[in-house]
């Protein structure tokens, strides 16, 4: 300890403090501050760049998801449209079928009606003709029958017999 105190040089101490404090102040202004600031800026820059990259990645992901979604939507829409078209086609076919059926039915009905009326007309005509013919035949028969007196009386008798029988 005695040696230490003896070795202590106030002059050296004075210069040491002066030099060191001067060095600290000088370096602070000209070296440490710019160095640390630059390093901080760089670190900040790296951090920001990383964050930006992450954000871009997320954006990309979102975009991809959006694309996927839009694609899906489009696909669904297409499917819906196809389905609708198919339905429409089916409906049209069915409608056409029913319409055709109805038309056919109508035609058939009309035909039937015509046939019926024709038939009726034909029958009526036939009846008339048969009636005419019958009358003619009857006329001929009657004329033939009534050509002699006996036969006329016979007929009247049979007819009268029928009446009584009835």
């Amino acid at each position: 300890m005695d040696k230490l105190i003896n070795d202590f040089s106030f002059g050296l101490f004075f210069w040491q403090i002066l030099l060191f404090v001067g060095l600290v102040l000088l370096l602070r202004k000209f070296a440490w501050k710019p160095i640390l600031d630059s390093v901080n800026n760089r670190e900040e820059g790296i951090k920001n760049a990383l964050e930006a990259a992450e954000a871009a990645r997320k954006e990309m992901q979102n975009l991809q998801a959006d694309n996927e979604r839009i694609l899906n939507e489009a696909r669904a829409e297409r499917d819906a449209m196809l389905k609708e078209a198919r339905q429409l086609k089916d409906n049209m076919i069915t409608d056409a079928k029913t319409e055709a059926q109805a038309e056919a039915d109508k035609i058939v009905a009309q035909a039937q009606a015509t046939i019926e009326s024709e038939k009726k007309a034909a029958l009526a005509e036939l009846k008339n003709q048969v009636a005419g013919l019958s009358v003619e035949i009857a006329e001929k028969v009657v004329r033939n029958e009534l050509s002699n007196k006996d036969k006329q009386l016979e007929l009247v008798d049979s007819m009268l017999g029928d009446v009584t029988l009835n």
């Binding site: 050296l12 004075f14 001067g22 070296a31």
Partner: peptide, 23 residues
């Protein structure tokens, strides 16, 4: 009172200069 620029003072001065130029 001895305020001499001794060998140690010179060394410190040199190191100070060196540090200043390096940094």
């Amino acid at each position: 009172l001895d305020f001499s620029i001794t060998k140690n003072v010179v060394s410190m001065l040199l190191i100070g200069l060196l540090m200043f130029f390096m940094f």
